Simulated scan of single mutants.
Amino acid sequence: MPPKPKKKCCDSKPKCKRCPLRMLKNGTLPEGYTVKKRKLVKIKDVPSKSSSKRAA
């Protein structure tokens, strides 16, 4: 299981493994989360992979 991200980046050098900025860059940030202003934030509307609006 990958490490859970911190709520806020500690801005240290070198970056720790739980840093949300590092996890975003590496693509290991959990689905439904993003980073804004060095803080971990949850995305409100997470599009589901199974439903598609283009399918008619």
Rank of each mutant, 00 (worst) to 15 (best):
I43R: 06
M23V: 02
D11K: 15
C19D: 06
E31M: 07
T28E: 11
K42F: 01
R54K: 14
P20D: 04
C16G: 13
K42N: 03
T34K: 10
N26G: 03
C19Y: 00
K8D: 08
E31W: 03
C10V: 15
S52L: 07
C16Q: 07
A56P: 13
G27N: 04
K7N: 09
R22T: 06
E31K: 15
N26W: 04
Y33K: 05
S48A: 12
K7G: 06
T28Q: 06
P14S: 05
P3D: 09
K13A: 12
L29E: 01
V46K: 11
K13Q: 13
K6Q: 11
T34W: 02
A55M: 09
I43C: 06
R22S: 09
R38G: 02
V41Y: 04
P20F: 01
M1A: 13
G27R: 04
K25H: 09
M23I: 02
P14Y: 04
K4H: 08
K44A: 12
P5Q: 03
P3S: 11
K17M: 07
K44F: 05
K37F: 08
K42W: 03
P47D: 05
S12W: 00
S50C: 07
M1L: 13
K25P: 00
C10G: 11
K15T: 08
L40D: 00
K44W: 03
S52P: 01
P30I: 03
A55T: 10
K39P: 00
K36Q: 14
C10R: 15
D11V: 10
K36Y: 08
S12Y: 02
V46C: 07
E31A: 13
R38A: 10
K37C: 07
C10L: 15
K4M: 10
L29P: 00
S52R: 08
P5K: 02
D11A: 14
P3H: 07
C9E: 01
K44P: 01
D11T: 12
P30Y: 03
S50P: 02
S12E: 11
V35G: 01
K25V: 06
P30F: 04
R54L: 10
K49V: 10
K4Y: 07
E31N: 10
T28W: 03
K44L: 11
S52I: 05
P20R: 00
Y33A: 02
K13I: 10
K15Y: 08
P3A: 12
K37T: 08
K7W: 03
K36N: 07
S12M: 12
R22F: 05
R18I: 06
K17P: 05
Y33W: 13
T34Q: 07
L24R: 04
P2F: 06
K6M: 12
K13G: 05
K8F: 08
L40V: 01
P5T: 05
D45S: 12
D45A: 11
R38M: 11
K37N: 15
V35R: 02
A55W: 07
K8C: 09
V46W: 04
R38N: 14
